[in-house]
Design a protein around this nucleic acid. Structure first.
Lengths: 218, 218
DNA sequence: GATAGTTTCATACAACTGTTTGAATTGCAA
DNA sequence: TTGCAATTCAAACAGTTGTATGAAACTATC
């Protein structure tokens, strides 16, 4: 078995193709061709196509969550044990945004695969995905610790909106690029992260008092 | 031909199934079964599956855009010809959010179909979708008129984030519901719209001065 | 170097896909 | 009614999908 050459070749090829073209457009024959292995190898090593996808998703899911939590811990341990809301939000959206928009090709593939997974939600993934809820709950708790005076419901909305902005920027950055005529620089990853974090922070920290924003113009 | 019974039956069934289960999971046989028509009817009336999807998408796309522009015009004509940024944003995200989250079943199907279309981006749709850019440009222009002092790049980011929040709320409202334990009320459509509009307005009108939000806590 | 276990391979399979065909049926005008 | 076009229908088509098979090639142990 050496180093599971065939197994890892399949995993890498599958991840890349799925990230690029989505689950429904990629066949096992596409994967084995890209991996230069025999067709039967997939079923031999993984049992079925669904189990291959599931393994891919579980692996990447764990990696992403670990990365997020590492950043969260770092932010919380640094100070008094309570992190700033910006730091919590950065830990939440940073890893994925850096992964997808950053220059690291391997990282980009992995991150884009996860985006695909969250979009297409094929059956093998749908089951596993429920675990994400409990993972996000830890971030909701951290956010509540950062902002003890904010209502719980607003914490959830803020978390939701932060993920929405990060997510959509990755998924449909091309449209933003076209729309703005290249004015919005998606290659400036830190700038994008800062924008998302800033807006989400505003959403969480500014009191909603009806026509709150009208007075702030200019 | 009477009233094109078969044609419309196919269109309705297809739209509903696509909205529910996505494009890749729905076959022509599923559609004709739901519409109670013969399999060959699809190719007879539409030419191909792709042309069916394209017709569906074009129809709905035009309807959505018209609805948005109607709201925009109404908001702009009401006052001095310049609308408030909130009104512009409401015209942008309102129709889709009301469509997907509201109680009107038929509307919900149509709106959810459009969400599917923007997510899965099958080939027949991808081409047509470029027109959406020019449609969004009109909203960017209206936003710029409402906020003449805001930099153009920030207008685009604000537009992008507004759509992102609306979009994700529709697509993944279930997760927010689970995460918040039902605390976030997605049935309160006007409340959801107000949240999205408020946050997007904050993003557009608040000066980003580094640690802008830290001082606003509590 | 023979043997047992693992891995690869070409090939076949059954199921499903969108599409086509040509005959039946329908609806309507002359 | 007759004739003609539009529509419906059952059946079959060719292509693709994920999966299974059994023989071949390999690997390591004795």
């Amino acid at each position: 078995m050496a180093t599971d050459q065939t197994r890892t070749a399949i995993l890498n090829a599958a991840e890349q193709l799925y990230a690029e073209r989505g689950f429904s457009d990629v066949t096992l024959r596409d994967i084995v061709a890209a991996a230069s292995v025999n067709l039967a190898a997939v079923n031999y090593h993984f049992g079925s196509k669904d189990e291959l996808i599931a393994e891919l998703f579980v692996t990447r899911s764990i990696a992403t969550n670990r990365e997020r939590l590492k950043e969260l811990k770092a932010a919380e341990d640094a100070g008094t044990g309570r992190a700033s809301i910006e730091a919590v939000l950065r830990a939440l959206v940073g890893p994925t945004l850096r992964g997808c928009l950053g220059p690291d090709r391997q990282r980009a593939t992995a991150a884009r695969f996860m985006i695909r997974a969250s979009i297409e939600a094929v059956p093998p993934i749908r089951k596993i995905r429920n675990r994400e809820i409990s993972h996000l709950r830890r971030f909701a708790a951290a956010m509540q610790r950062s902002l003890p005076d904010v209502a719980e419901v607003d914490i959830y909305w803020g978390l939701h909106f932060a993920l929405a902005m990060a997510h959509q920027t990755i998924r449909d950055g091309e449209r933003l690029d076209k729309l703005s005529g290249g004015l919005c620089d998606l290659d400036d990853v830190d700038g994008v992260i800062a924008r998302v974090v800033t807006v989400a922070t505003l959403a969480l920290t500014t009191r909603r008092t009806g026509a709150s924003a009208a007075a702030q113009r200019a």
